[in-house]
């Protein structure tokens, strides 16, 4: 199915879940409170049947704006693709977890939590995945500044006078 057809199908099954798609954008924004229902639908509807979550990534546009998470879906039998995006608040942002719908999401959601600090509600094991458990802050945020020390180890080398 083409992009517009997929949108039309979802609008028919779950009206109001998708924000009106921008012309030529290639992605669609989902209302956060509808996400769990829409994800279930995308996975199980025989005409959509997105059985593969190819990627899940966090985005940050800068300190003044909310974060977002992009989900790249693919159907391995119908061979169509869709990118859906969900906004999350910068401070204490939370999105429903889809780890029980696509198993791929399990570690990817942990990575987004680790690097952006977005909490995924209902995730079976919401911990940091890459950084040490006692690390402070979420490094991929634009307004992140690295700490001077981690457990007494200098994090960034002082290179004043080197250049």
């Amino acid at each position: 199915m083409e992009f517009t057809e997929i949108i039309a199908r979802v609008d028919q099954l779950a009206p109001g879940a998708f924000a009106p798609a921008e012309e030529g954008a290639g992605h669609v924004w989902v209302q956060p409170e509808q996400w769990l229902k829409v994800a279930q639908l995308l996975r199980e509807d025989p005409e959509l049947h997105f059985d593969s979550l190819m990627c899940l990534s966090g985005h940050d546009r800068g300190p003044e704006q909310p974060l977002w998470v992009a989900y790249n879906l693919h159907s391995m039998d119908i061979l169509h693709k869709l990118e859906v995006r969900i906004e999350a608040l910068r401070e204490g942002g939370s999105i429903f977890s889809v780890a029980n719908i696509w198993r791929t999401a399990d570690w990817h959601e942990r990575e987004v939590y680790d690097l952006f600090g977005i909490n995924f509600e209902g995730h079976p094991d919401m911990r940091r995945i890459l950084l040490p458990v006692d690390w402070e802050g979420h490094p991929l945020l634009k307004d992140y500044t690295a700490p001077d020390y981690y457990r007494g180890i200098p994090v960034l080398k002082d290179k004043r006078g080197w250049e």
């Binding site: 700490p147 960034l156 080398k157 290179k159």
Partner: peptide
């Protein structure tokens, strides 16, 4: 120089 995650 950069990279908060790598020991220098």
């Amino acid at each position: 120089q950069h990279g908060y995650h790598v020991l220098k």
